[in-house]
């Protein structure tokens, strides 16, 4: 039973990752693409790690997996923010591109 629940979580995470990969290839503008990539980094990774937690249910394993989630949810938004800032600061006609696509 526990393994089945864990499998459901992991499969949902993989589906989210698949959607985010489709999004990265479908969108053409940097900021849109970043939105798609962040989906996999936050929700997909979170679902997979929660599935692994349910699968193992050992205190130390759960603590280490929590650290992984914490690290990713702390670092991914910062990286995304930096990329978006560089895009806005350096791309001079970005308003046109936003309107077009």
């Amino acid at each position: 039973m526990r393994e089945a629940i864990a499998a459901i979580f992991i499969i949902f995470g993989l589906i989210v990752f698949l959607i985010s990969i489709f999004g990265i290839f479908r969108f053409k503008y940097v900021l849109n693409r970043m939105h798609a990539a962040a989906l996999g980094d936050t929700l997909g990774l979170g679902l997979i790690v929660v599935g692994l937690m349910i699968y193992s249910l050992n205190f130390f394993v759960v603590a280490k997996l929590l650290l992984i989630i914490l690290f990713f949810w702390l670092s991914a938004p910062i990286a995304t923010h930096s990329i978006a800032k560089v895009e806005v600061l350096t791309n001079k006609n970005y308003e046109e591109r936003v309107r077009e696509k």
Binding site: F71, L74, S75, I78
Partner: peptide
């Protein structure tokens, strides 16, 4: 300074 605060933590 979002990047700087994050770097300070990580």
């Amino acid at each position: 300074p979002i990047l700087q605060i994050g770097a300070k933590l990580i």
